[in-house]
Amino acid sequence: MTNSDLAISARAVKKSYGSTQALIGIDLDLHHGECLALLGPNGAGKTTTTEIFEGYRKRDSGQVSVLGVDPSHGDLQWRSRLGVVLQSAHDLGELKVSEAVAHFGSYFRDPAPTSKLIESVGLIEKADSRVRSLSGGQRRRLDVALGLVGNPELLFLDEPTTGFDPEARRQFWELIESLKARGVTILLTTHYLDEAELLADRVAVIAGGIVVADKSPASMRAETLRTATVSWQESGETKSVETNNPTQTVLELMARFDQEIPGLSITRPTLEDVYLQLVGSHYLGVK
């Protein structure tokens, strides 16, 4: 299974915590240079999956290869090729931004130049500020800088924009785009569909410990066009029909009303609806 085209390859990965089966069997591939977004409700197994890839947790069974290495036996040389941006770190408060970046850079043979890296995450004005004085968004950008300090081939981003204001998120997305342009392979965990659609080449949805969907954002978007809901007012109540041919439905209504159709609307499911349906049908299927 050691396919050299793959940055990550996982087959039938299982993991239980006590009697709870967190992962029932994860199959996932990530190609070099690709950005994969991992979506899924809380408790679905996203964090367990990524932490197995990062070497933080041990799987019970199945095969995993990350940059050609089994992460449960990853050595320091392997680690130096990864960048990990964790969900919630609030350490390093007393250090200056530049000190933190320079310090962690010293762990690598060929680290990114400190000031260039700080500039690339948009913290140059904060380079001499103490980490504890940073805002939430700035703190996250420092975490990303520390994840990038060793020029990693593969970057793990765990819910990087949670708690960001819209402007900070937009800036953050630009940063990720620039990393993609540099050819960094990215595994992004997120709750935001717009973020996944914008940044990812592929979206994998995890629910109940398995991958329930693995497709491009475009094909997920295409599913939103498959059906439509036509609704209107009739005898004092709202009626609605779900159909694959909304034009036909409207034509029929026009014939029936012979005038303006009261309260007519045609709505398509949003990306979120498609996502919720994927997740929901899985849980329904389980029951």
Partner: peptide, 17 residues
């Protein structure tokens, strides 16, 4: 406390002996 702050997890993810 460092463990709670995420400092140790950060270090674990770095090529540090």
């Amino acid at each position: 406390q460092e463990r709670d702050e995420g400092a140790l997890k950060r270090l674990q993810g770095l090529p540090m002996p």
